[in-house]
């Protein structure tokens, strides 16, 4: 169990920010991550782009394709993290799909994560039943495999929460990632069910874009995760996106603090 989550990321209500590595360029990704840290983000999820991201809506899927057509590779993602690590200790996790990790080789992949102080990994297409694929190797290198819970998890909540590492990623709504007008799932009861079996922090993601939503989600859990809204700003402003990303993340972190 990596200690960074409880001791650092979730020492207060957390704001967790996602972006796709290499969108629009590797240098820009380094710059955006540092801006998000300066704006108060507690944890950055770095997306390793995948050709067929099954859990993503159009915004992140297009970012993945932009990054890949710009020549992004798993090795280049590690180089981006290397650059970040020259100047920052901001907690980092990767978010990607199982195939790029499998193909890279679990052993070299997680060894590299440890060298670069990447504390966890989120893999939407590796559900609880398939965690055995990676759990031993990840644990050897102190990388937490983050478990996801969904509105449909129901009788699976206890089983998943008991074994959860790092934090629990609670998917707010049905469907894929992307901005949503409202979130209607009864998240309170899911969080309550989690609390019965573990004190592992819970953060809510999918569909959050406004400060009010972030505050609401953080108030019923331990933090809010935002991806598509940030990736949209990056898509809109390209290499000039840094000040916009900074302002946005700052506003979101302020909202989460009020929770």
């Amino acid at each position: 169990m990596n200690r960074v989550f409880k001791e650092k990321v979730f020492s207060e209500k957390a704001f967790i920010a996602f972006l796709t590595a290499g969108d629009p360029t590797p240098q820009a990704t380094v710059e955006f991550v540092l801006e998000m840290e300066r704006a108060g983000a507690d944890l950055i999820e770095i997306g390793i782009p995948f050709s067929d991201p099954m859990a993503e809506g159009p915004v992140i899927q297009e970012a993945d394709l932009r990054a890949l057509s710009g020549g992004m590779t798993t090795d280049k993602v590690f180089s981006i993290v290397e650059e970040i690590r020259r100047v920052s200790r901001i907690p980092l996790v990767f978010m990607t799909y199982l195939n790029p990790v499998f193909y890279y080789g679990y052993e070299p992949f997680f060894a590299r994560c440890k060298e670069l102080d990447v504390s966890g990994i989120i893999i939407p297409d590796a559900p609880y039943e398939e965690h055995f694929e990676i759990s031993d190797v990840a644990e050897k290198y102190d990388v937490d495999v983050i478990s996801m819970l969904a509105p449909t998890s129901e009788n699976r909540i206890k089983m998943i929460a008991e074994k959860a590492q790092g934090f629990i990623y609670l998917v707010s709504s049905m469907g894929v990632t992307g901005v949503r007008g409202e979130i209607t799932t009864d998240l309170r009861s899911i969080v309550a069910a989690v609390r019965e079996v573990t004190d592992t922090p819970v953060a809510v993601g999918f569909g959050i874009s406004t400060p009010q939503q972030a505050q609401d989600m953080a108030s019923l859990s331990d933090g809010a995760i935002v991806g598509s809204a940030i990736v949209k700003l990056i898509a809109q402003y390209g290499q000039q996106a840094a000040p916009y990303v900074y302002e946005y993340v700052k506003g979101m972190k302020d909202a989460v603090r009020k929770a």
Binding site: M54, A55, L98, P124, D125, A126, P127, Y128, E129, E130, M148, L149, A150, P151, T152, S153, E154, N155, R156, I160, V171, M174, G175
Partner: peptide
């Protein structure tokens, strides 16, 4: 069964 948690149940 390599699918998102949303589909597992």
């Amino acid at each position: 069964r390599y699918v998102p948690e949303t589909l597992m149940n």
